[in-house]
Design a protein around this nucleic acid. Structure first.
Lengths: 164, 164
DNA sequence: TATTGTTATACTCTATAACTATA
DNA sequence: TATAGTTATAGAGTATAACAATA
């Protein structure tokens, strides 16, 4: 029989985190889609666009949502068809474009925000302020670790490409 | 301008959790795939099969990994092609089958486990035992909340189907 | 009637690679 | 040379719906 690692606190915590993330994302995805017609990705784009006052370049969006540029191209092209964003050329860089949040996009975002709030309340139900605070500290650390790991992956593949 | 909800501790904690989950999953997915050739889903199936002593039905797997039965059908059919599992009819229920972990599946799992351990160590780096403990408590609560939400969704759609 | 597993279909998301245009 | 964006292609994952076989 194979030796499944149990009892290691770090491994257990990691597993619990992954299981929890999976369950929360599944719940959020289906609730969000059923009640707003938006995927969580699209909601994220609408939201960051609103925060940035309605305009961003695809590269900026890609950095923000941790996706490649071509994924933003396809995501935005779907959102363009749905009328939530439109595109205009950049005034300062002729290679670049600005993704603009439309009136319909704003309305969709306003409609979707209560759904996001309900999901947050369900997921974080019966958590004390103290738990929320300690969780915030921990999550910031975990997120930073993951970002460090991702950066290392990116640098390694860049190095590989250069040495090849 | 739209009113983006910031300052609400519950909403902030939820957002941080989602961002962290996204970053960790992205890191885990790409590292796992590069170093083991397995997706995290496939690893999960291999692992639960090993824990259950090498045999489970598709329905049991589906319940465990929080996916629908037909998703297990397609996932397992890919793993069958790769030789990690094989299938045999159930001796007790002629509707059912058993998914069996092959020797190659065990080997792949053994090969993938150090990768999982490395990822866990990177993600949970520089966390004190106390942080791990408090995180475990919180995550258990969050996971339970998400499961409750998912159960409600399932029951609602069952009710809808029955009343229709 | 309910459950087990499968198939068909479509959409979202992701990854690799190659490409154009501009800086 | 590097960066911005796009396109082509492929595969994984998921959802809805409908289906056959068995309990």
């Amino acid at each position: 029989m194979i030796n499944i690692e149990v009892g290691n606190p770090v491994f257990n915590a990691y597993h619990l985190f992954m299981q929890t993330a999976d369950a929360v994302q599944k719940y959020a995805d289906s609730t969000f889609y059923r009640r707003s017609g938006l995927s969580v990705s699209k909601f994220g784009v609408l939201q960051i666009l609103a925060i940035r006052e309605g305009s961003m370049t695809p590269s900026e969006i890609a950095r923000w949502i941790l996706r490649e540029r071509h994924n933003v191209t396809t995501l935005v092209s779907r959102m363009k068809k749905e009328g939530y964003v439109r595109v205009e050329p950049s005034a300062t860089d002729r290679r670049s474009i600005n993704i603009i949040l439309t009136e319909k996009g704003y309305e969709k975002l306003e409609q979707a925000q209560p759904v996001a709030r309900d999901i947050a309340n369900q997921v974080m139900a019966s958590m004390s302020e103290r738990s929320l605070n300690s969780m915030t500290k921990t999550l910031n650390m975990v997120r930073k670790n993951a970002h460090n790991g991702l950066d290392e992956l990116t640098n390694k593949s860049k190095k590989r490409r250069k040495s090849a």
